[in-house]
Design a protein around this nucleic acid. Structure first.
Length: 582
RNA sequence: GCCAUUAUAGUUCAAUGGAUAGAACAGUCCCGUCCUAAGGGAUAGAUGUAGGUUCGAUUCCUACUAGUGGCACCA
């Protein structure tokens, strides 16, 4: 909680004490001191009167009045301008000059000095980087930055599936491709990766077409067999020809991912691969299986399974009938590898919510097998991204790739500024940052646990609550600052306008909203706040002249600078860049 | 079928058990340029259904309805 709110709380508690309420009872009084949503009703409020009316055996309205009188005497007049009781609430008005203790870090007991690993994005080489990865990246990036702000020591992890059946499908699907293997200098990395993505789609298509002919058909059986063989070859690297193609494809994919991370603004500390976690996980499972009281069991066809039902979960396969470790077994190996690299206090994996059940099982298994690490593992999930105007479904094959979405938005953004008098490189860079802001903000302005309906037009629009709307507020301030260069900056003696006062009173709320975002792991508090701040700035700007002739109002100019600072820091916490111009 | 999760204006989203349920877009009506991808103001409009707990429920509980995800060798 913010210091100012703590001060009020402390005095509320002493109010209970002077009313002869016992300490044990006081602890049970769950009142809050929070920011007033309606700024006209004051800066802070407390619901103390409502919550304590039973204990004080008094009408809440009377308590509110008494409390307000009491606090008016106790609290520092240099901070509190006015304290008033209205209905059942007590409202607090801070003095105009109030500035909160402004620090980059906001202490929180769950984060301060804790070592926390954030694993997110997790794309798979030789497969498309899809919008799910984009979401995971956006959310993981901001959560890690929020943790940093809260005082945590963090590392960013990315885990990439460079082994597994999906790769076998891609490699197997290559034979059906009409275009040749794009191993040439004049083919861009994007097109090379696109080719691989197409091979994966092709492989899946051929397989499902064949499945429709009947699961007993010779063709389907043959295809399944071939994919199985390919999977084995990738796993044990027994076929030199396969190795060459595989290594090349993997390298292209990773290069492409790196390019995307640059655009998105993520820098990972460690990369992990399934090809590394698989043998480690497999060994751990095998070793445990040999024990008398193993948590694993033999399933159908010689599989190794974990019977989750005993723990209120469901059964999952850890090793396939062919002896290959599944995602679940790899997850065990990964936990060990991650912890060996950096002894974290907590490891958080961010994925779409379709994986909720898997993580419940794997985290349980890890806890049983490696008690030192298991309890430190946690999973945060997010909803799926859908698009306005179209029912997206993976079944119909209409899936939009993440990098295509970014590119698409970049082009749309570029289109809007193509006539500006600017260097080409700047235009490209700006349209890129704006596009990323548009996408990220759409995701972060709402509760990420729910599905997100992405609207391309609205997310880029400067009307309404969008990332670019906030970026634009910063740009507007920049252009004011530029205009003031060389002009006379002087204090003016005049009463503050209502808009000026409101903007000023909104600024210190940033820390408070950050605290809430940290406390609830909810970046939307910051996003919503930034919209509010940008909007208040625009209202202020509309009504107040900062520059009159060749004179600049010093007070208003400083307010602009402060606003810009908070907007910039807020966007940065969301993993969004500000731009100089637009 | 079982488990999880969601349901708030026409649409897309907010709201630690408490004040008059906040925005944005679309609609209607104004103002406007120190910002030019300008922007701002006003106006109208919502808690899926039925119960329960509570002084008080959008928020907690139960049932129902509807949507989404998951439920053994994909990740």
């Amino acid at each position: 909680m913010l210091q100012i709110a703590e001060i009020i709380k402390k005095h509320c508690i002493s109010y209970l004490k002077i009313n002869n309420i016992e300490d044990i009872v006081i602890e049970s009084v769950r009142f809050t001191v929070d920011i007033n949503k309606d700024i006209d009703r004051g800066d802070l409020y407390t619901n103390f009167a409502l919550v304590s009316s039973k204990i004080l055996k008094q009408d809440p309205t009377a308590i509110a009045v008494n409390l307000a009188q009491y606090l008016d005497k106790e609290l520092d007049k240099n901070i509190f301008k006015k304290i008033e009781a209205i209905d059942n609430y007590v409202n607090f008005y801070l003095v105009d000059e109030f500035v909160s203790e402004d620090s980059e870090n906001i202490y929180h007991k769950d984060f301060d000095s804790k070592k926390i690993a954030y694993e997110y994005t997790d794309p798979n080489p030789m497969k498309e980087f899809h919008i799910g990865h984009l979401m995971s990246n956006t959310i993981g990036e901001t959560l890690s930055r929020i943790a940093q702000m809260a005082g945590a020591d963090i590392k960013r992890y990315s885990y990439q599936g460079d082994a597994g059946r999906h790769l076998a499908v891609t490699m197997w699907g290559l034979r059906f491709m009409e275009t040749p293997w794009p191993d040439a200098d004049n083919i861009s990395i994007t097109d090379k990766v696109k080719f691989l993505g197409q091979a994966y789609v092709m492989g899946n298509k051929k397989l499902s077409e064949s499945k429709e002919k009947g699961e007993d058909s010779d063709e389907y059986k043959q295809y399944m067999q071939e994919i199985e063989v390919m999977n084995q070859k990738i796993y044990d690297r027994s076929d030199e020809e396969v190795n060459i193609i595989y290594d090349q494809g993997r390298e292209w994919s990773l290069e492409k991912f790196e390019e995307l991370y640059n655009i998105l603004g993520t820098k990972f500390d460690y990369y992990f691969f399934e090809s590394k976690s698989a043998p480690v996980g497999l060994q751990i499972v095998k070793d445990d299986l040999e024990k008398e009281n193993s948590i694993f069991a033999k399933g159908d066809n010689d599989t190794v399974i974990f019977k989750g039902e005993d723990h209120g979960l469901h059964t999952r396969v850890f090793v396939t009938s062919k002896g290959i470790p599944t995602y679940e077994a790899k997850e065990i190996g990964l936990a060990k590898i991650k912890y060996d690299v950096w002894n974290f206090d907590k490891s958080i994996v961010i994925t779409a919510n379709e994986q909720n059940e898997v993580f419940k099982v794997t985290n349980k298994v890890i806890s049983l097998l490696i008690p030192d690490i298991g309890p430190k593992m946690s999973h945060i999930s997010h909803g799926m991204m859908r698009f306005v105007g179209e029912k997206m479904s993976s079944r119909t094959g209409k899936v939009i790739a993440g990098d295509e979405l970014v590119e698409d938005m970049m082009n749309a953004s570029y289109e809007k500024m193509k006539d500006r008098d600017m260097e080409e490189g700047d235009k490209k860079q700006i349209s890129q940052d704006v596009a990323v802001a548009a996408i990220k903000f759409s995701i972060l302005k709402q509760n990420f646990k729910k599905d997100i309906i992405f609207d391309k037009e609205k997310s880029l629009s400067l009307e309404g609550d969008s990332g670019p709307y906030i970026q634009y507020a910063v740009v507007r301030i920049n252009s004011i600052l530029k205009k003031t260069e060389g002009l006379e900056i002087a204090k003016t003696e005049r009463e503050l306008s209502k808009e000026t006062e409101n903007l000023n009173r909104t600024l210190w709320r940033y820390n408070h909203m950050c605290f809430k975002a940290i406390d609830e792991m909810a970046p939307q508090y910051i996003a919503q706040y930034l919209i509010d701040l940008a909007s208040r700035f625009n209202t202020f700007y509309n009504k107040n002249k900062i520059i009159e002739g060749d004179k600049v109002d010093k007070g208003l100019l400083e307010l602009c600078v402060k606003t810009k600072d908070i907007l910039t820091r807020g966007l940065d916490t969301l993993g969004i860049r500000v731009v100089e111009r637009m």
